[in-house]
Design a protein around this nucleic acid. Structure first.
Length: 808
RNA sequence: GCAGAUGUGGCGGAACUGGUAGACGCACAGGACUUAAAAUCCUGCGAGGGUUAAACCUCGUGCCGGUUCGAUUCCGGCCAUCUGCACCA
């Protein structure tokens, strides 16, 4: 009697759908649970085997929560704007809208075939005008609250295609598609002030349950540092050069300064610079470099001294040279640094290369610490003590920092300053396939938002969606669309032609799921109050610093303006590991190691696929695909199916069997909560082996087993549940409970060690008296042999765990 | 270079708060069933030594060191691999 997964899986999927088994109600009288997975980008390749890993995991949790009586929301949608669809469209001359529709259709079929318990009545699609109306609405609110502004930013510009490129499309400094050099080009861009939320994005991490590594990575990305801004006078000039430093204590050792190539002071003091041509050549070279080149590994430091101007060290009053180098970034701090080669590694390398003076101002109080500034910079803060530093001499680094900043503040040459690495969010793209930015430029009134009642501002359905010359947005070519009236003064005005980045739609989609068909608001107050916050959000580590931070930022803003009821969107965040190809490398077409989920479902069925992905390894770690291993999971499910032959009537519990069942319920219940799905599956396998040994199983045991396995392999377990005569579908039965006392063994095996090595084991009654245990230990022949002729120094008994004898 | 992670048999992995390392699965080997194969069922399976067989002994969780009666687990220092990135002063 074989298991025909094809018909059975289809049967249950249809049944769940037609009976609305997994529909979530907005019914505030029920306790809710909201589980979220990152909605997919519907790419042309179809579903990746990585998607089901995350989706199955949360599906298991969602199914368990339903059985525990929660009103569960487990939604799905499509993040459908973005570059690949547009590039595909340009290449194959199919409209991105058509491509996207086809892809969504394909993804939907694939997702349904995997039997996820999604509420299919709540699907959202970021390219639907009814959806992006609210994406645009949020942007307008951001603008009205001063959090959206325009500024000039460099973009990657392909000299061949004449278009702006995403960082991802720049490979080794050349365009990914045509191989032409990529240069930095200045462009006016919309920016969002995420930096205004930097501190709150750090602080509120204390209130949420994220994996520690996610919190750490976000904090490091935001990169708060405490230091000082210090003003350096330019000799013979009223101008000053302001630097940011986290080490103001080393100010006496600042022997030169460095500015970023883009620093405005070069332009301002142009007339004073005696080697202007050389400096400008360096600036041009830096401009040609992509981000990649500027951050290349082990790069030789480059730079040019700006001759004709000097700065004054404010504490030593010594004249010091000013250099320009691309190791200083215009985007961080003030775009200028004071260089202390004795105590900063990069400054040290630079000084060595260009023969600049190195003055030691810190020595180590620890004699074992090597501190030779001729060989390398001394950067140890903990053991440092100030020398050659006037009034700071003898102080620790920490005390010197305080004292020097106080001094700088008193004399008006510096201030305490907190800095963040986090930069504002570049929000415009010169692309077609995105939400139009609903802004209008009026010569008189400046930037004016499209009136809210006119939203959505629908993306025009143009045929000519290829990029324009000079990196303009494709929309810029459509004069009739651009031309409009200023909503403010009514005069002729122009629409913004840039579109939003893909991050926009995904920054709030979880709110729309709560009330997806609302036409009056992004979601009703009742829905938001009921479903917020998301109880559990699982996604990839690669989204930790961008999507996760962006959506937290938007959510906090929406909280500030009274739209959402919680400060944080996600109460809990976990992450899954990537699935690699069978050769241990990332799956890619070029490596030929891609696994198509359709083939797996075709050959083994959805249940095997799901069980395998949960069994393949620890959920949060990368795991290679294995065709052999998936066959093993298929075999396991066949064994579960064939177990129906062992079914017997009546009460066949043996005490051992009963204990095994209680232990298993406990183990699987806690494993699911801790996402230890791999050990849950091995528990199921061990149980199955046990059932095979006994060749008998009663209906109650089999039912419980099927209920536990149901979240992992929903189709087969439902079918078996029906076969053994249960009327209800498992999805509507309560999650099995266990009796704690029946999970504890009264006879236990305790290992006996001699000098930490196991020599024997004894069997004792739980919680036996120590004397009794000791007696048993010393009666043991192996132990007698092991301690013979030796002196017992000490005996350690850890109750019910281990007995160790230390001998000499 | 910076940040985050990972390293255990032939392979994927297990091991609760520091307490019998290798659960479970794959691969492999042997057996049962079969005319035969596949499938299925049963048994064995870290390495080395030892024994007719066992018992038993030694080594073993990337490397070096430390703490401890006892370390895959804690601490210090290395090495390698993966992921992300913005040389972050």
């Amino acid at each position: 009697m074989g298991y025909s997964f094809k018909n059975i899986e289809k049967k249950w999927q249809d049944k769940w759908y037609s009976e609305g088994t997994f529909y979530a109600e907005n019914n505030t009288s029920k306790k809710k649970w909201y589980g979220l997975i990152e909605f997919p980008y519907p790419s042309g390749q179809g579903l990746h085997v990585g998607h089901p890993r995350s989706y199955t995991a949360l599906d298991i949790i969602a199914r368990k929560k339903r059985m525990e009586g929660y009103n569960v929301l487990y939604p799905i949608g499509f993040d459908a704007f973005g570059l690949p669809a547009e590039n595909y469209a340009i290449k194959n001359h199919v409209h991105p809208k058509v491509v996207t529709e086809q892809n969504i259709k394909h993804f939907t079929d694939q997702l349904k075939a995997l039997g996820f318990s999604f509420d299919w009545s709540r699907v959202v699609n970021t390219t639907d005008p009814n959806y992006y109306k609210w994406t645009q609405w949020i942007f307008v609110q951001l603008f009205k609250h001063g959090l959206a502004y325009k500024t000039t930013m460099p973009i990657n510009f392909c000299t061949g295609c004449k278009v702006g490129l995403a960082n991802e499309e720049v490979v080794n400094g050349v365009c990914e598609r045509c191989g032409s050099p990529v240069v930095q080009k200045e462009k006016s861009q919309w920016m969002l002030k995420i930096t205004e939320y930097a501190q709150r994005l750090i602080d509120d991490l204390d209130e949420v349950d994220y994996l520690e590594k996610i919190k750490t990575q976000q904090k490091n990305w935001i990169g708060r540092s405490e230091g000082a801004e210090v003003k350096f006078k330019i000799v013979g000039h009223h101008k000053e050069l302001v630097v940011y430093t986290t080490r103001p204590d080393t100010l006496f050792g600042a022997t030169y300064m460095v500015v970023a190539p883009e620093h405005p002071i070069i332009k301002e003091l142009e007339s004073e610079i005696t080697n202007l041509e050389e400096v400008q050549t360096y600036q041009k070279q830096a401009q040609l470099k992509s981000d990649f080149e500027r951050s290349e590994l082990n790069k030789e430091k480059t730079g040019v001294e700006i001759k004709g101007i000097k700065a004054l060290n404010p504490l030593t009053n010594t004249e010091i040279p000013i250099w320009v180098s691309d190791y200083v970034l215009i985007t961080y701090g003030t775009g200028a640094i004071m260089a202390v080669p004795s105590h900063d590694t990069r400054d040290w390398e630079f000084a060595k290369k260009f023969n600049l003076p190195i003055i030691q101002v810190i020595e180590s109080i620890d004699k074992n610490t090597i501190c030779d500034i001729e060989k390398e910079a001394f950067t140890d803060v903990a053991t440092g003590r100030l020398i050659n530093s006037g009034f700071l001499n003898g102080l620790s680094v920490e005390d010197a920092k305080k004292k020097v900043i106080d001094c700088l503040e008193e004399n008006g040459i510096g201030t305490r300053k907190v800095n963040y690495k986090l930069r504002d969010w570049v929000f415009s793209r010169q692309r077609y396939w995105g939400e139009p930015i609903p802004m209008i430029y009026c010569k008189q009134c400046g930037w004016v938002p499209v009136p809210e009642e006119e939203l959505p501002l629908v993306l025009p359905d143009i045929e000519d969606y290829e990029p324009g010359e000079n990196g303009e947005s494709p929309l810029a070519k459509h004069k009739e669309w651009i031309k409009t009236k200023c909503p403010h003064c009514g005069k002729d005005a122009q629409r913004e032609t840039d579109t939003m980045p893909q991050w926009a739609g995904s920054s709030w989609y979880f709110l729309r799921y709560m009330d997806p068909h609302n036409t009056e608001a992004l979601a009703s107050k009742e829905a938001l109050n009921y479903w917020s916050p998301i109880d559990w959000y699982n996604g990839g580590m690669e989204h930790t610093t961008l999507h996760l931070l962006y959506s937290r930022f938007w959510h906090k803003f929406l909280y500030d303006i009274g739209v959402v009821p919680t400060k944080e969107p996600y109460a809990k965040r976990t992450s899954h590991g990537m699935i690699l190809g069978a050769n241990g490398e990332k799956m890619s077409k070029s490596k030929g190691n891609v696994i198509n989920p359709d083939d797996i479902i075709e050959e083994f069925g959805a249940d095997t696929f799901r069980v395998y992905e949960m069994f393949m390894g620890p959920f949060d770690q990368t795991a290679p695909w294995s065709m052999e291993s998936i066959r093993g999971c298929n075999k396991f499910l066949d064994r579960v199916w064939n177990m129906q032959e062992f079914l017997v009537d009546g009460n066949s519990y043996s005490p051992e069997f009963e204990k095994m069942m209680h232990k298993a319920i406990k183990k699987v219940s806690s494993d699911i909560e801790e996402m230890k799905f791999n050990t849950s599956v091995s528990t199921f396998m061990t149980m199955t082996n046990e059932f095979y040994k006994q060749k008998r199983i009663n209906k109650a045991e089999y039912s419980t087993f099927l209920q536990l396995l149901n979240p992992f392999a929903p189709h087969m377990t439902e079918e078996l549940f029906e076969i053994i005569g249960s009327k209800n579908t498992i999805a509507n039965t309560p999650w099995p409970t266990y009796d704690e006392s029946k999970t504890i063994d009264d006879e236990i095996v305790v290992p006996i060690q001699v000098n930490g090595k196991v020599k024997a084991t004894i069997s004792i009654t739980l919680d036996s008296d120590e004397d009794l245990v000791a007696q048993k230990v010393h009666e043991n022949q192996s132990i007698k042999n092991a301690v013979a002729d030796r002196t017992i120094i000490k005996e350690i008994y850890v109750k019910n765990k281990i007995y160790n004898i230390v001998v000499k």
